[in-house]
């Protein structure tokens, strides 16, 4: 699923011991191999929940929680899981964490849970979580896997927040429900941005910007 370049990258330029490796892992997950903008994984939820910044932040937090948790447990159990049933074991672990988060939202933030609707449950099929478990946690010790999970979750959350920020700003002229002066007087909010097409355009542009910043040499299209 996700590529193994992560592995080679983490080993080809070692900076000291586990601390250095942890740092490389962190940087790799959050920037160089950003799951959303570079690898284009898990875009379903990235598009669906980003009509408001608040939703994006909650979704980002959910994904960080789930990737850390599932990476940790997949990694702990990696030596006792039979290879043939590893997929279903991974799915079960991921689903457990998703249910935990869903119940938490329902108990303490009912409004938010209603707004996110089925998308919390859909974290289970989010390719990032599965991809990290498969590509990283199965081969690495628990602590490093947690770092990797955090890095990838963080990379995802940041891109989500960027998209959410611009969509809410241009779509409603507000940020987190507060009106932004310039955008309410001189600019007519464009409804299109909070509807579906706005999501596609924004993500397309974000990916393109990442491509520009990263330079044209890496042609690793999926």
């Amino acid at each position: 699923m996700a590529d193994n370049k992560q592995m080679t990258c983490a080993t080809c330029k070692p900076k000291g011991l586990c601390g250095g490796k942890g740092l490389v892992t962190l940087k790799d997950g959050a920037w160089a191999n950003n799951p959303l903008a570079i690898q284009v994984l898990g875009i379903c939820s990235a598009l669906a929940v980003t009509n408001r910044l608040e939703n994006s932040l909650v979704m980002g937090a959910a994904l960080i929680f789930v990737t850390i948790g599932s990476n940790l447990f997949v990694s702990i159990l990696r030596k006792v899981t039979p290879h043939r049933i590893r997929m279903i074991a991974e799915v079960a672990i991921i689903a457990t964490f998703v249910i935990l988060f869903d119940q938490f939202l329902k108990a303490f933030y009912w409004e938010m849970s209603k707004q996110l609707g089925p998308y919390v449950g859909l974290i289970i099929t989010n390719c990032i979580v599965m991809g990290r478990a498969e590509a990283f946690a199965l081969q690495n010790p628990p602590i490093l896997s947690m770092v990797d999970g955090a890095a990838n979750g963080f990379g995802y959350a940041v891109v989500l927040a960027i998209i959410g920020f611009f969509r809410e700003l241009f779509g409603t002229g507000e940020i987190m429900g507060h009106k932004i002066p310039l955008f309410t007087d001189m600019y007519t909010p464009n409804q299109l941005m909070i509807l579906a097409p706005g999501a596609f355009f924004t993500l397309g542009i974000v990916i393109a910007i990442f491509n520009i910043v990263k330079g044209p040499d890496k042609e690793e299209k999926k």
Binding site: G204, I207, A208, I209, N211, K221
Partner: peptide, 8 residues
């Protein structure tokens, strides 16, 4: 345009 190629 170059940066838009592929997924974007």
């Amino acid at each position: 345009p170059e940066p838009f190629k592929g997924v974007a």
